[in-house]
């Protein structure tokens, strides 16, 4: 397999605004490049709580890069209606497909997973909790632990690993990820969940690898950029 995943199905969950969608998109691309052009990689957008900055907004761009985005069809892509497509179950069962699920934030966003519980037997998936300690309500280990139980109870699935996505967008430094990892280390001890990988933009990835030599790095090409951003830059300034 690969150090970033253990199973065919990767479920990306976490608190609201933790960076799940960027992680999900980049993990899909990593799967695609690992398994080669023949592989079918489906990115399933089941984010029914968020409205802007969703995987489905990058449908065409990702299709060109060999990612099959499954999301509500046509006009419904732009609606605030759940409108889950019927093909989701099919993808979850198709053993030929690599699947990444981009789930909505918080327990509220994870609730929809409960509907697919029968399609996701324990041991058949990775469920990764994306954590950004610079977000309110996940800035300490107690809060992270509460989030884990709440997401598990709503989704009726088990979280299997953590992703350290510590970031302040364009202002992120390698030290921010290091500080984040301190908290995740404590969370690992309390929950027994391993950190599957850290995620960061390519510019700081080498420094992060040096600081955190034991954790794989998922490099993030940024897709969810605001309209004024240029290239891979959030244009943090105004």
């Amino acid at each position: 397999m690969n150090s970033l995943w253990h199973h065919r199905v990767s479920i990306i969950t976490g608190s609201y605004g933790s960076g799940k969608t960027e992680v999900a998109i980049n993990l899909s691309l990593a799967k695609r490049s690992f398994y080669g052009n023949e592989a079918i990689v489906s990115l399933i957008d089941v984010d029914i709580v968020n409205l802007y900055f969703r995987s489905r907004d990058k449908f065409e761009e990702l299709a060109k890069r060999g990612i099959h985005v499954i999301a509500p069809a046509g006009d419904l892509r732009h609606a605030d209606l759940p409108a889950l497509p019927a093909s989701i179950s099919g993808s979850l069962h198709d053993t030929q497909q690599q699947v990444v699920l981009d789930v909505g934030g918080d327990p509220a966003g994870a609730t929809v997973l409960g509907r697919y519980q029968a399609d996701l037997p324990e041991g058949s998936y990775d469920m990764i909790l994306v954590v950004n300690p610079y977000r309110p309500y996940t800035d300490n280990v107690d809060a992270m632990q509460r989030l884990i139980s709440a997401i598990e109870s709503k989704s009726r699935l088990r979280i299997t690993a953590l992703c350290n996505n510590s970031n302040l967008m364009g202002f992120t430094t390698p030290e921010d990820l290091l500080r984040g990892q301190d908290l995740l280390g404590e969370l690992e001890v309390r929950t027994g969940l391993p950190t599957a990988f850290v995620s960061c933009v390519p510019a700081i990835a080498p420094a992060v690898s040096v600081m955190l030599p034991n954790v794989p790095v998922l490099q993030l090409g940024l897709y969810m950029l605001p309209p004024w951003a240029t290239g891979n830059n959030y244009a943090g300034e105004v």
Partner: peptide
């Protein structure tokens, strides 16, 4: 942790 927090616009307005 830094003073800065990463927030969504709607949340930031509420907290402010």
């Amino acid at each position: 942790m830094k003073q800065r927090v990463l927030m969504k616009g709607n949340e930031a307005i509420a907290e402010a």
